[in-house]
Computed example of a mutant assay.
Amino acid sequence: MSDLIPLTGEPLALDLVNTRPAAGDLLETPDGLRNWWTLQADRLRDEVPQEITAADLAAVRAVREHIARALGHVRRGDRPLAADLEALNEAQRAAPAINELVWNGSAVTAARRREGSPGRRLAAWLAEAAAEVLADPVATRIRECEADDCVMLFLATHPRRRWCSAARCGNRVRVARHYHRHKAG
């Protein structure tokens, strides 16, 4: 499996950080962000916009960097930098959330919505997802993949989990181990 295919299925904040594989950046361009956003559409509250601007991309990438640094500290049990926490708080404030009330024909429903440009709204949702992970004691169970050429993060739901993905890195490590065993023999 290629590093250019996003790793998904972890908490949303980790999936965002994992858009920075060892080689390259999956959010290098607005199209890259649109592709990732589309993959995550079922977990995000906003529809993927037709046009994503450079400013939208910059807002999301800035949140990603603050999440990555804060997670790096928190998963080791260390205090995150105040600047990273403040930047995540500011990203949430930049696109305020409201519970928008709507009459659906038979009842009042409430849908959580955010104000602002698409990038600011997405950055705010992602900062909110980061706040949930960072404030949760499970953050200390976030690990980096043990494959030599991988930098992906994952939430270890099982104490013996060592790789970001059995298909992505686990198989590569097992195949390499098998090759070296049989080459030496």
Score class of each variant (00 low, 15 high):
82 A>F: 08
113 R>C: 02
84 D>P: 09
20 R>N: 09
58 A>Y: 04
110 A>E: 03
120 R>W: 10
111 A>M: 03
15 D>K: 05
85 L>S: 08
25 D>A: 10
123 A>T: 08
33 L>T: 00
56 D>L: 01
54 A>R: 01
76 R>D: 14
68 A>S: 02
73 H>L: 10
140 T>E: 00
75 R>A: 11
135 A>V: 04
16 L>N: 13
36 W>G: 00
27 L>Y: 02
97 A>T: 06
55 A>T: 04
45 R>F: 02
49 P>V: 04
122 L>K: 03
179 Y>G: 05
14 L>Q: 10
150 C>Y: 02
38 T>G: 04
82 A>R: 09
47 E>V: 12
146 E>F: 03
35 N>M: 14
33 L>I: 09
20 R>K: 07
22 A>Q: 11
70 A>W: 04
174 R>G: 04
132 E>Q: 15
162 R>V: 08
59 A>I: 13
170 G>Q: 11
138 V>M: 14
151 V>F: 09
91 A>I: 10
22 A>C: 09
132 E>L: 15
149 D>H: 03
157 T>R: 14
168 R>C: 10
98 I>W: 01
7 L>S: 12
138 V>H: 14
45 R>L: 09
108 V>Q: 02
67 I>T: 15
57 L>D: 00
14 L>R: 10
80 P>R: 06
117 S>N: 15
156 A>Y: 09
21 P>I: 03
79 R>C: 07
115 E>V: 00
129 A>H: 02
104 N>R: 04
171 N>H: 05
7 L>F: 08
51 E>K: 08
4 L>F: 10
47 E>Y: 06
72 G>V: 08
85 L>A: 03
